[in-house]
Amino acid sequence: MTLIRRILLRLLTMAITLFGVAVIVFFVIRVVPGNPIAMMLPPGAGEEDIARLKALYGLDKTIPEQFVIWLSGVLHGDFGTSITTRQPVLGLVLSRLPATIELSVMALVVAVIIGGALALTGTRRRGTRTEGAIDVANGMALSVPDFLWGLVLILLFGVLWPVFHISGRVSPALDLPFSTNFYLFESVLRLRFDIWADLVSHMFMPSLALAIPLAAIIAQLLKQSLKETMNLDYVTLARTKGYGENHVITREALPNAVLPTLTLIGVQFTFLIGGTVIIERLFSYEGLGNMAIDAVINRDLPLIQGIVILFALIFTVVNLVVDLTYAALNPRLRHG
């Protein structure tokens, strides 16, 4: 199958997935208890007021009718208007998206660096106490979920030794000369390293909390496949050529051992993005996840729909990217 065909097929599957997600979320949030109209009206409002507001937001129609109206809007790029803020959903969501992308990608990078370093060290020192210590640390990191790591980090770096910012995305006093919401990225481009440092200080704890469990998974799986690969004949052959342990691990074993880990990172990265919802709340980080919790509390139906669709889009894109990377790294798949 050619690359183009593979991508086209995946895009089609993505569209179907997104449609399915749209259907499910749309119906579920209308069936569960809780009603946005009730939350907007002052106590003692009459039946007439309720009916008027319902009509205003299109909630007087049947659910399938509402769905068709909403879907045709979405297909024209109109995700509706947020009930609580009375602003277009698309604009709201897109303004928060960069913050969440930056946080997730930073967490991913941290996880890959920590996990990769632990796996390589554990392989280099296999059979020693160092490897044992790494295994124990992995087990601990895996058995605690990300939000608890968040609390632990707050205690450590927010209370005991307060070196990092504990909440928010950026210090409010700073003047931000940015034209996009990708603050971290833009601060580098504009060489504003003072702002960059402030952003990193805010992101340090939430991204580390998100990264720790993923780092442990990466360390465990990558170390396992590295150790298996190290026993293969081509690694032995490289040793007889005169190569030392470091070269053999990084050049001969790693490129082959990394493939299963890569697939896993793709899957786990979507979990990590899911984890941002609670972590952003914990650290009052102004991203999509924090907005999602507010939207649910306020029963802001159009906003919930918009956010869920966007999350679903991110998940499917991540999976597509992983598949393509996998094909690019594995020559056997490229030709097969």
Binding site: L232, D233, Y234, T236, L237, A238, R239, T240, K241, G242, Y243, G244, E252, P255, N256, L329, N330, P331, R332
Partner: peptide, 27 residues
């Protein structure tokens, strides 16, 4: 070990048993 590897690498060589697993599949 380091010197030994150099001596082996320069003066000796291995023809392995299974050619299907003795070449690195990603290179």
């Amino acid at each position: 070990p380091r010197d030994r590897r150099r001596v082996i690498g320069a003066r000796a060589a291995l023809i392995p048993q299974d050619p299907l697993t003795a070449l690195n599949p990603s290179r």
